[in-house]
């Protein structure tokens, strides 16, 4: 069982949360000319790192806020949780 620290509510058990995927993926800017390749990268390509991984989680059965988690995909150690606007 993971224990995840929601930046708004504190430490809660994993079953209160839903996973939202890789947080390093950046959506191309709105109204900007972009190539198909840039769009493909955003939609489909993932680094899927072994080790430190920045990812989105949703406190879906709690405050319903999205936030970022830095977690080790090989050990499940959680290093840091951040609000969406914050950077590592």
């Amino acid at each position: 069982m993971l224990h995840i620290k929601c930046p708004y509510c504190g430490i809660r058990s994993q079953n209160e949360f839903a996973y939202g995927g890789d947080a390093d993926v950046k959506r191309p800017e709105l109204n900007k000319e972009i190539s198909d390749l840039e769009w493909d990268s955003f939609v489909y390509l993932r680094k899927s790192r072994r080790g430190k991984h920045l990812e989105l989680w949703h406190h879906i059965s709690g405050c319903r806020q999205w936030f970022k988690v830095q977690r080790d995909t090989a050990t499940h150690e959680i290093f840091k949780t951040l609000k969406p606007s914050e950077d590592i």
């Binding site: 995927g21 890789d22 990268s41 489909y44 390509l45 993932r46 680094k47 899927s48 790192r49 072994r50 995909t73």
Partner: peptide, 16 residues
């Protein structure tokens, strides 16, 4: 796959 792809500078439509 993604671990070896990184060594080849490839990013794939794969998550582990």
């Amino acid at each position: 796959t993604s671990i070896l792809a990184e060594k080849l500078n490839m990013t794939l439509p794969i998550e582990t």
